[in-house]
Design a protein around this nucleic acid. Sequence first.
RNA 1: GGCGGCAUAGCCAAGUGGUUAAGGCGACGGUCUGCAAAACCGUUAUGCUCCGGUUCGAAUCCGGAUGCCGCCUCCA
Length: 475
Amino acid sequence: MLRLYNTMTRSVDQFRPIEEGKVGLYACGLTVYNYAHIGNLRTYVFEDVLRRVLALDGYEVKHVMNVTDVGHLVSDADTGEDKMEVGSQREGRSAWELADFYFEAFRKDMARLSLLEPDIWCKATEHIEEQIELVRGLEERGFTYTIDDGVYFDTSRLKDYGKLARLDVEGLEAGARIETVPGKRNITDFALWKLSPGGQKRQMEWESPWGVGFPGWHIECAAMSVKYLGDHFDIHCGGIDHIPVHHTNEIAEVEALTGKTWVNWWMHGAWLVLPTGEEDEREESESVKMAKSGENFITLDLLIDRGYDPLVYRYFCLNAHYRSPLTFTWRALDGAANAYERLKNRVVELKGSGGAGSVSESHYAAFRDALEDDLNTPRALAAMWGVVRDENLSGADRYATLLAMDEVLAFGFEKMEAPEVVVDEEVERMIRERDEARRRKDYATADRIRAELLERGLLLEDTPEGTKVKPCSSR
RNA sequence: GGCGGCAUAGCCAAGUGGUUAAGGCGACGGUCUGCAAAACCGUUAUGCUCCGGUUCGAAUCCGGAUGCCGCCUCCA
C-alpha cells in the first residue's frame, strides 16, 4: 500500500489514483537560463524515485515536465527583467540559444544521475496559444483586470486563494516588503500576460489580444499540465519553495477556470543546504540553502571534476528523506562516495558468484515497505545493505535481490564491472618482477614496485587467484 | 513584523508512545595477508538541545527556554 505525503492535507495519506492503474504526474522543470545546481537536482532525484516507485506498484505513469524558457522574472513581484533576457545579455547569445544550451545541459545531468526522462517535455515558448487561451478563459469569467503593464489575476475573487500554502493574506500585507506594481489591486495578484515595455523590442514576445508581450510565469504550468494531463490529475510536484507563490497561483488559475479541484496530490522536495562558514569550523547546525544567485553554486560537473561518480550524488540524496533538509558538505559526500565504492565492489563480487538466483522475499519486502512509506529511501538503503551483508543467502540470490531493488535505486548494478585497467607491457613486466620478488621473499623490492605502480595510479591487490590491478581513486 | 520547519553518536541520517534507538561513513580491535588492499567479524548514543508536564511507559505528545533554518523578493 503506497502512502504519500500531500502538502494540501499536510498528512501522509494512502495514494489513490483518479483512474485505476494510471497516474498523471506533473513535475515543475527548470528555468533554463543557467546550469542546474545540485540543489535543483536533488528535487529531480526525489521525483525520479517517486516515479519509479509508482511504476513498481504497477501504475502506468504519464510524466510531464515543463521547460521554462521565457517569462520568469527576476522578481516575482512582476517587476524586473526576464531571466532569459538577462542571461542572454550576460552570455552574449540569443535567448533561444541560451534556452537550448541549458536545456541540453540539464538533460545530460539527468542522464548522469540515472533520472528517467519525462514522457513529455513541454516548453513554455511552444505553448503560447494555450496560455493565451487560458487567460482568455479567465477574462471571460471575470477573474482578470488590465493595467498599464499587463493582465492581472484578481486573487480576491477566489474564496480559497492560498489554500495550499495556508497563506495568511492579511499577515502578508502587514509585513510585506514587496515592490508593488502600480495598479495591482491586491498584494497577491499576479501577472497573467505581461506587455512588452513601450517601444522596447524583446527577443521573446508574441501577439495577443491584449498587445505584444509574453506570458506570466505561472500560466505556463497551468496551461501545459491541463493540456497533457487534463483539468483534474493525480500528482504535481516541485521544490518546497513553490508552495507559497508558484503552485498557489497555478491553482488559482486552473480552479478559477474550472471551478473544481485540479490536482489531488501535491508533493514537495526539501532543500539541499550548505553549512555556513568554513567547513569543519562552522558552528553546529548553521546552514544556508543553495541559490542560483549565490556564490555557493555547485554543479554536477564540479562534482565530476573533483573525481566523484555522479551516482555518488544520487546515493547521497537517497540517504536522506526527501522532506528533510539535507546538509551538503564535501565530507558527507566523501562518506557517500566510500559507501558507493564499497557497494560497487560487493555487487561485482556477488555477480561473479554465478548461478541463477531468486529474489529474497523478506529483504525485498522490507525495501518496498520503506519506499511505500512516503518514499523512505534511507530505510530502503538500509534494507539494501541488509542484503549485501546477509551471509545466509547465496551470492546469486543476493545479486538477484539487489537487481530487483535497482529498479528504484538505479545505480546500474547490472552494468557494474570490475574496473578495467589497461596494463601495458611494462606494467605487466613490473608485476611479474614483483611476484618473483615475493616468491623469494624479497619484500623490499616487492613493496618498492608496488609503490611505483601506485604512483602511476595503479593499485595492486594480492588475492588467492593472483595479483589484481585496479585503478586507484583520484581522491 | 507575519507564517512555517528543524534540533538524534566524530560526520551524514532513519525512527514520531511500548522489547536491546535503523543504515552508511569514519575510528578502534580482530580474521585474512610477508605487509597491505579487498572482504568479513566485533566495538563505537544507558541516551535523542535544555527545563517542566501528561502517561504504567516519551527521542516520539503538551508547555516553556535556547539555537538554527526557510518562506513572506528570485529560487528545486
